[in-house]
Amino acid sequence: MSMNSTVLTVIALSALVTVIPRILPFILVRNLRLPDAVMKWLSFVPVCILTALVIENMLIQEESSLTIDWPVLLILLPTAIIAYKFRSLSMTVVTGVLLMAIYRNIL
């Protein structure tokens, strides 16, 4: 077991900059009543951000190029069918991981 002081500083500062955006809205919103338009805007955040995160995982960004991660896109298609059919998160994730493991080891 070892602890490097640079690593420790990185961990401490990264934790700090991560926790601020997590808790700040909870502090700001406490004493405010948000206008209806803002609440409506916030109601679109889940679908938008989850779509963004799925797409982010399908992209490979390097220094000066942006490419599509075809294996991820390919395996996401059957995974989407499972997600739609079973409406079960665990089923979706287990199937996805299995399909990707099969793809990488066999194909």
Binding site: L50, V54, N57, I75, T92
Partner: peptide, 14 residues
């Protein structure tokens, strides 16, 4: 791949 699969599953639930 658990990560994109999870996000996709959560998106469908939404």
């Amino acid at each position: 791949f658990a990560l994109p699969a999870m996000f996709l599953g959560l998106l469908f639930l939404q």
